[in-house]
Each structure stands twice: as C-alpha cells, then as structure tokens.
C-alpha cells in the first residue's frame, strides 16, 4: 500500500478543515492508516488554514516534509502558491480560481498575484495543475458554501477510491436538509475537472 500525502490549503471560513477531515475519513474507509494535522493560528479571524493529510499502510508523522506532498487541494489561489514548497515534480494540483484578497491587498498596501503568476508558479512546482471555478459552480447551485464540496467532487476524480465511499463520507457529515444540495455539488465537482484541465 503506497503512502499518499495531501496538502489542503485555504482561508478561514472556506470549509477547508471540513474538507481535510473528509479526505482523511475517506482514506480510513478505503482501508488506509490515516493521520492529519491542521495549522489554524487565528484562522477563524480570516487567516490561512493549512492541513496535512496522509494515507498509508502505517503512518507515523502527521506532518509531511517539504517536497513530499503528492497532491495539493487549494481553495484559494494565493494559498495554493504558499504551498508549492511542499510539492514534488510529480505532484498534482487542484485549485479553486476564486481569489480572496487578504486585507493587506484590499487595504491597498500589497498586490494580489495575477492569474498568470498563479499559473506559472503552480506549473513550475507540479506535474499537473487543474483549475476549477468551484465558487461559480456553487453560486449556480444556489449556495456559496458548497464550493468546498464541489472541490471535493472534482478531487475525487483524481484518486483511485470508489465514488460511493466518497459520497458516503461527505453526506454523513451533512445535516439532512442539505443532503440533496451537497449531493448535487459533489456531482457537479465530479464533472468539472475534465473541462478544466490546464496542462
């Protein structure tokens, strides 16, 4: 059983932690030993959120070394860029295109990277980069909050775990009245990667 390491990156309030919890649980359901570590800081107050998730036969450290991450699941482009040092030349990246400028940018003291810069930096670090406009898909579905489930749906197509396992874990964490919405979001996610592959 091969070890697989994932970096999940986002901004406080985006559902990054829920997504990394789901990813860890999917690994457990698929028969792996699993560990994950979150760095929150003051995340709830709009800071960066970073999770390491590991699947393997026997996982020791919950924290992954730089250059050892096989996948980067990023909910925000700037946060994706911060994660590149963890990647290796065969890594795969899935990145939400919706930018959330930090207050240093909105206040005018710093500049947010251009989309071209984002693409260049991510491509220089990984083998494959997929962009998904998950926030737009979520808005189409009528609730911005399901962007993370759209991302998970998209991400599930990059891994060799049955879709049923994914859906089981995702839906077990959703209150009954939102199940249909989240099911839709997951399905939407499953279809968007093919349309959005960049390289």
């Amino acid at each position: 059983m091969k070890n697989i390491s994932f970096l999940v990156a986002g901004v406080g309030g985006q559902g990054t932690l829920l997504a990394s919890d789901i990813l860890a649980e999917v690994g457990m359901e698929a028969g792996y030993d699993v560990k994950k570590s979150d760095v929150l800081g003051l995340a709830v107050r709009g800071g960066s959120v970073l999770s390491h998730v590991r699947w393997g036969e026997k996982v020791a450290s919950p924290v992954v070394r730089k250059g050892d991450m096989d996948y980067l699941l990023a909910f925000e482009p700037l946060e994706a860029m911060r994660g590149v040092e963890f990647l290796h030349p065969k890594s795969i990246v899935l990145c939400n295109t919706k930018a959330m400028p930090p207050i240093t940018v909105s206040g005018g003291s710093e500049v947010y990277p251009t989309h071209e810069q984002v693409i260049r930096v991510l491509q220089s670090a990984a083998a494959t980069v997929h962009f998904v406009d998950a926030s737009a898909e979520a808005e189409r579905l009528g609730n911005l909050k399901v962007a993370n489930v759209v991302m998970l749906g998209a991400f599930s197509t990059l891994l060799d775990v049955p879709r049923k396992t994914w859906e089981g874990v995702v839906l077990s964490r959703i209150p009954q009245k939102y199940v249909a919405l989240n099911q839709n979001a997951f399905h939407t996610g499953c279809t968007v990667v093919k349309r959005s592959q960049l390289s």
Binding site: V11, M81, R82, P101, T104, E110
Partner: peptide
C-alpha cells in the same frame, strides 16, 4: 521549489 517572497500576507483581523 520555493514560495515566491512577494506574496501578500494574510494576517488575522
């Protein structure tokens, strides 16, 4: 690969 140094900080507010 290193992280570009000019990335804007995301400080809590």
């Amino acid at each position: 690969v290193t992280v570009p140094t000019e990335l804007p900080a995301r400080t809590p507010v």
